[in-house]
Design a protein around this nucleic acid. Structure first.
Lengths: 223, 223
DNA sequence: TCGCCAAGTGACCGAAGAGTCACCTTGTGA
DNA sequence: TCACAAGGTGACTCTTCGGTCACTTGGCGA
């Protein structure tokens, strides 16, 4: 691995850019896009507001979309890609189940480790996708994630490892499941009495098993 | 049924209130809470802005939360209640499956017939639930829906008609499934080429069957 | 017919926040 | 040591929008 050919100036510039993105991540995650202010991002990053415009010339939107693309979507894309290293796994029902269990666990672990990014995804993902003025870029990113999930589903269906059902809705549905469970988690967290009911979420692995069981085996008792 | 004991004045007042709520519904559905303006609501309702404050003294929040409570949550609550008229149905796997299939179909039909209200739910539901300053009222409403779905699940699990899995996450997951499928629907609708792939959504009934199959029977081919 | 009151109205106000720019700081090379 | 360039700074401007209130209107009872 070559030492990156960056001058000290470029390295420092990159560092500052990252610091700004980090601050923005925290603020957007807490407040949501509309309620977040550039003053707060600047303050948290310990820069003047004007500096933000040196790095993100188009201001708030620029900052947010860059963040969404690089951090939120990029992170999820990486998790999805990692879950399907071997196309052979999708040849059998068992292999498919294991692969998707891995994906779900990966997504949940990612949520634990990158909570800010996931909060942005939870809060702003659907709003962005449904906006009437939905930015082409935003739409592409959103659909990119669904695409990435759909592809292995399609492969598995082709192989007879999954029921022959329309794959794109399944992809949306899988993302909806993960979203639902994260909501359940946050719901319990915010609940007045702490945990109203012991949840199955001692770990990402247990939770992933829970979702996988329902998704692959169904809610009905197997006879 | 008695004719409601309302004076003409009260009836007209109620009518105007409804007109304002209708306009607000359209505007909030299209723009989302933050981007919606009271000027636009007033214009669409053909009232002056000041009039809005006669009916919703606390302004934008008041209008939105009233709308959310009465129209969005109220509508969903009605659909959920309708789906479980007979507790006996939850005694067997087959009855349970049929009842939840009815619920899902009801939710999807409700989406078709009350698209504005559902768009508000889709866009603002999670953001509201996750807000750091989450209004107690908002939280109660959100949780109320989940509660209403959880209750029959609990009954079915008690009866052995469903696997013994934690019920609250299942409730969240079911709502996530419906949300996911609606996203798939809207995604296809917005897609540049119209419908990139024929979706299973010729009707709410077919779509409900799709979700029910996955949720109850699972994705794996039954042996 | 007159007067009163309930109710609608929209010009106006103030707060908030995105975006700008003249100024200043720092570091570098001559 | 000096001059210059690169780049950070935050006070300022301008727009938008939620909320207010003095005025108008219209209907009803005396």
């Amino acid at each position: 691995m070559e030492v990156p050919a960056l001058s000290r100036r470029d390295r420092e510039r990159l560092l500052r850019r990252t610091a700004i993105l980090d601050a923005a991540r925290a603020v957007f995650a807490e407040k949501g896009y509309e309620q977040a202010t550039l003053d707060e991002v600047a303050e948290r990053a310990e820069f003047g507001k004007g500096t933000l415009y040196n790095y993100f010339p188009d201001g708030k939107e620029d900052l947010f979309f860059t963040l969404f693309e690089e951090v939120v979507v990029g992170g999820l894309g990486g998790v999805i890609a990692e879950a399907f290293p071997d196309p052979e796994a999708l040849a059998t029902p068992g292999g498919t189940r294991a692969a998707f269990r891995g994906l779900i666990e990966g997504l949940l672990t990612h949520f634990e480790n990158h909570r800010d990014a996931m909060m942005i995804f939870m809060k702003e993902g659907h709003r962005m996708a449904l906006s009437p003025d939905r930015n082409e870029t935003a739409a592409r990113h959103w659909l990119g994630i669904v695409d990435a999930v759909q592809r292995p589903i399609e492969a598995a269906v082709r192989n007879g490892a999954l029921r022959a059902l329309p794959t794109r809705p399944i992809a949306h549905l899988l993302m909806g499941n993960v979203r639902g469970v994260i909501m359940a988690h946050l719901d319990a967290e915010c609940a007045p009495s702490g945990t109203p009911e012991p949840l199955p979420f001692g770990s990402a692995a247990e939770t992933a098993e829970f979702i996988t069981t329902i998704l692959f085996d169904g809610l009905l008792p197997r006879d």
